[in-house]
Design a protein around this nucleic acid. Structure first.
Lengths: 240, 240
DNA sequence: CACCTCAACTTACGGCATAAGCCTCGGTCG
DNA sequence: CGACCGAGGCTTATGCCGTAAGTTGAGGTG
């Protein structure tokens, strides 16, 4: 790479590096990413990247930032907090499944990007502004996030046509009894998980998760995402 | 490693290799695992491992098999399908969170081990034997799995004291406004996610997910995990 | 005894992340 | 105008990685 071409090329920036990394992973898979190839993709030697990112871990963390930014722009908070929560879960599902190779990084890298905190903050604010008890607003958002995350991961890893595996049988070892293959097909193959996810999300927000319909009260009934009514005791291990 | 010590050492098997790999990952972290170090751990050169596993990917897939075997033994199906489903979700949560470094492999590797299919089959059989419609039995098990998986991943990645990060602030970039740090603490830090998970699981099975309490009917009402009442149309993308 | 099998070993190769240092610009200030 | 300098890209070099290919030697089988 001589000096002339280096001049004509737009200068590298952290954002351009991360963006290229995300597109590379989307196209070639996570395992295929290397600093050399990423550099080559940008018309630059590997070591030049280190002027803009700390190391490869930093690149991967940066990709997660990018994904959260996508989620943030896809589901901004509005006046209607239920619609906002729903959009948030939906955006989580959509963005992660839209990047089948990079998406799992969101739940693999131990990092909480600012974009994640911003969108959480906004949706919480929207809910509390409508009178929802703050702790309950957090708990419900947490429950929705967990459900969306788990659901999309099951979808990505265990469903054919999700962009990662063409058929269910590709996920199984070849010498399996037909009976178990049948179980796999029933569990993974036939149903439309996207529809299933949306129905679950709808239900959660329509009040099923809060059967009395009064989400603004803070009475201590057992509800998903409500923990105030249970002390630190009990049978839970690994308490902080 | 001379011949004499090779003789006294118990012979390598695939299972011993995988077991050592799991313990190594538990102790040193996923990124630290290499064939050389794994071999050294077993008193053997790296290449000797290849007599028992195909390659490194095979080792990681094997670790996932081990984890599913743990889940299988922890939550065998019984006559009471609701208790069984509950135990299954619980086991997923426990086993994955019990291996903070290896657990995420379960939703990262694209593989469905036989142990997973066996336990799924048994719990489905238990439910249908009690009169639950088969498609609904699958849908509910799928929903519980998704919730458990997503919940434990949020726990592992975003909670301090989960074995991966000591404090919430370690997960954040250092130059964050106090307001967002506060959001992070509320969302991740203070509550006991294990209790929250168990409550959600209980609720799902006590009938909240099926408000009419009649889980054996197959009327086409909108329910999480019920998809029969919606055709292939609709707004879903990436349909197979 | 002769032979075969097979697990473990040795060697070797290309790719990886990245540390250390260099080179060459464009801008800044005397 | 000319000396300086900082930044961004390049070169080189190191040590680890996964693993292909071929070797060794002990136990079992004829």
């Amino acid at each position: 790479m001589d000096v002339a071409t280096a001049r004509t090329r737009p200068p590298l920036t952290r954002h351009r590096v991360l963006d290229a990394a995300l597109r590379y992973i989307d196209a070639q898979g996570l395992a295929a990413l290397s600093m050399h190839k990423l550099g080559a993709d940008l018309g630059v030697k590997a070591m030049s990247l280190y002027n803009h990112v700390a190391d490869k871990d930093d690149v991967l963390d940066g990709v997660v930032e990018l994904l959260w930014t996508e989620i943030e722009t896809a589901a901004p908070a509005t006046g209607d907090w239920r619609a906002g929560y729903r959009a948030f879960g939906h955006a989580l599902w959509d963005v992660i499944s839209g990047h089948p190779n990079a998406g799992p990084l969101v739940c693999t890298r131990q990092i909480i990007p600012a974009a994640a905190l911003r969108i959480i903050r906004d949706h919480i604010a929207s809910a509390t502004a409508s009178g929802v008890h703050e702790q309950r607003a957090y708990a419900l958002l947490r429950t929705i996030s967990s459900f969306a995350l788990g659901h999309v991961l099951v979808y990505l890893n265990w469903s054919p046509c999700s962009g990662r595996a063409p058929t269910v049988t590709d996920l199984l070892s070849s010498d399996l009894p037909a009976e178990l293959v049948n179980v796999a097909e029933n569990f993974c193959g036939q149903s439309n998980l996207q529809v299933e996810f949306e129905l679950g999300l709808d239900l959660m927000l329509r009040g099923i998760a809060f059967p009395d319909g009064d989400v603004t009260s803070d009475v201590a009934t057992a509800q998903p995402g409500h923990v105030d009514d249970k002390g630190p005791g009990g049978d839970n291990r690994r308490t902080c």
